[in-house]
Design a binder for these strands. Structure first.
Length: 500
RNA sequence: GCCCUGGUAGCUCAACUGGUUAGAGCAGCGGACUCUUAAUCCGAAGGUUGAGGGUUCGAGUCCCUCCCGGGGCACCA
């Protein structure tokens, strides 16, 4: 960071020390009896509302309507005895006109000499439309609301440097309209998801972030330490197990929308902390979860006025996982249920370039999915019927004749080549759940370092009796990527993880 | 963790094959201008080229180490 200029030596200068120049103007305002950091400014109207009020006026039209607005000074086009300025607030931008014959020499000089681009101003002005058709407020009075002591980003190019944009997001938000739009949209997406679920009788709940044992997903956790208890805790990797205990407790429809933490690599679709929605619905199954996901996302897309290429509001494509893999690679994974057998088929497949050495059977299926299927799923798609080995918390799918399929009732939803959601008919047979945990332990020994730890208190909860339940997890950051047309998770997380 | 690639003024970008004093625009400073909108015009400024070392008569440019981004691989959602 740049050093602050020493106080005092700022009254005169050649203008090369940008910070000193701004501090000198701060002093000049105070010397003129103007408080540069006042406490409030009442009765402010959003710029967007001013625009709506005067929509349709002709070029050159005058009004007698006065407005009070507030925002950041973005540009100034001086003309001696008259000047145009642009002011931004969250809702948009509007042009201001400052005239010597309206403001008088004293206030005109304050506005043009002591106010800088980037300062926060309150404006009282009368609306008119310029000769060239721009809605403008003629400034009757103005108030400095906060002096800006650092220069703003380039008024035309904004802030381009990706590192600066993420480390100093406030500058990105000031300088880049698209950034502000993306985060406003993110906020609306989250609130519309809540509105939908609340309207469907779900309760929003909060479960522990610090957990004595992590679980509910396949991932490595962060570890932290509680001093008074002198023991380690894990930051949650999922809310799944606690939420299901609430279903056991009779809350029937619950959701939690919050941060999860996974100690994995960082990429354009992975941030160490990320926002996840999970909901659980008693007396429902995977089909109900699928229909509800579709309804929920469709509600959101309509509510935010989504206008991109993705067909959220049409019925989503649904197919089986095995079918999608076979379509893409010609390999029928269900016909080769051991790692050795599947590895041999993968080696023989002409169009498949994967090294199956040392991979377990579920890992191989996952490899095929991630490399040959997932990247091509641009439009919303649900893949059903996952192998039981990949799904330790999902209920088995049965053939009509009652025979085993080796599959579970589960789907994952994809869009823009990314997984965005994961859902299943929740396993509620405690003995079967215990066997799945033991199978996870076996996989861990076989080389899967992210297998589930055994959670006895969760088993006990299932022994208490959990109703049949449909559960779903939705990656909020990824949904926001898709709905805002951004390329990476860093573009939709305000302060993504970075080195110090 | 590995591979590739980048870091030049407050911001956005130039600078050929290693060659004079590292250049523009915006912002800032001084001046002109009462309907401009990337306002315009005149003038004067503004740089430890990410940091450190090396090669060379000479380094923004080549080499090494480190720091911080971006892309890819691996791992994951």
């Amino acid at each position: 960071m740049t050093e602050q200029a020493p106080a005092g030596d700022v009254a005169e200068g050649d203008g090369t020390d940008l910070l000193a120049v701004r501090r000198a103007k701060l002093d000049a305002l105070r010397a003129a009896g103007i408080e540069p950091f006042p406490h409030d400014f009442d009765g402010v109207e959003p710029i967007e509302a001013v625009r709506e009020r005067h929509a349709g006026l002709e070029d050159g039209a005058e009004t007698e309507v006065s407005h009070r607005i507030a925002g950041r000074l973005r540009a100034r086009r001086g003309q001696g005895k008259m000047a145009f300025l642009d002011l931004d607030d969250r809702s948009g931008r509007i042009q201001l006109q400052a005239k010597l014959d309206v403001l008088g020499p004293e206030r005109m000089s304050r506005l043009l000499d002591d106010v800088d681009l980037g300062d926060l101003l309150g404006i009282d002005g009368v609306a008119f439309v310029s000769r060239r058709g721009e809605l403008t407020l003629r400034i009757e009075d103005f108030t400095v609301l906060a002096k800006s002591l650092r220069p703003p980003p380039d008024k035309h190019h904004g802030l381009q440097d990706t590192e600066l944009r993420q480390r100093r997001r406030e500058l990105d938000l000031i300088g880049n309209e698209e950034t502000r739009q993306a985060f406003v949209t993110r906020s609306r997406i989250v609130s519309e998801i809540r509105r939908y679920l609340d309207g469907e009788g779900f309760l929003e709940v909060e479960t522990p972030v610090l957990q004595p044992l992590y679980g509910g997903a396949l991932a490595r956790p962060f570890v932290t330490h509680h001093n008074a208890l002198d023991r380690d805790f894990y930051l949650r990797i999922a809310t799944e197990l606690y939420l299901k205990r609430l279903i056991v407790g009779g809350l029937e429809r619950v959701y939690e929308l919050g941060k999860n933490f996974r100690n994995e690599g960082i990429s354009h679709k992975h941030n160490p902390e990320f926002t996840m929605l999970e909901w659980y619905e008693a007396y429902a199954d995977v089909e109900d979860a699928a229909n509800r996901l579709e309804a929920c996302v469709q509600h959101v897309a309509r509510a935010i006025g989504y206008e991109g290429e993705t067909r959220w509001t049409e019925p989503w494509k649904r197919q089986t996982l095995a079918g999608a893999i076979e379509e893409a690679t010609g390999i029928d994974v269900l016909a080769h249920r051991s790692s050795e057998e599947l590895a041999a088929v993968i080696r023989d497949a002409a169009d498949v370039d994967l090294d199956p050495a040392g991979r377990t059977w579920p890992q191989l299926v996952d490899d095929l999915l991630s490399k040959y299927v997932e990247p091509h799923l641009q439009q919303p798609t649900m893949l059903f019927d996952y192998p039981v080995e990949l799904s330790p918390f999902a209920k088995a799918k049965r053939n009509p004749d009652g025979s085993e399929t080796g599959l579970v009732e589960r789907f994952e939803a994809f869009a823009h080549g990314m997984e965005i959601a994961n859902a299943f008919s929740e396993l509620n047979d405690p003995d079967e759940q215990r066997r799945r945990f033991e199978e996870q332990a076996r996989l861990e020994l076989a080389g899967d370092d992210e297998a589930q730890p055994y959670d006895e208190s969760f088993i006990e909860a299932l022994e208490q009796g959990m109703p049949p339940t449909g559960g779903l997890g939705l990656g909020i950051d990824r949904l926001v990527i898709c709905m805002t047309g951004r390329r990476t998770i860093r573009e939709v997380v305000l302060f993504p993880a970075m080195r110090d």
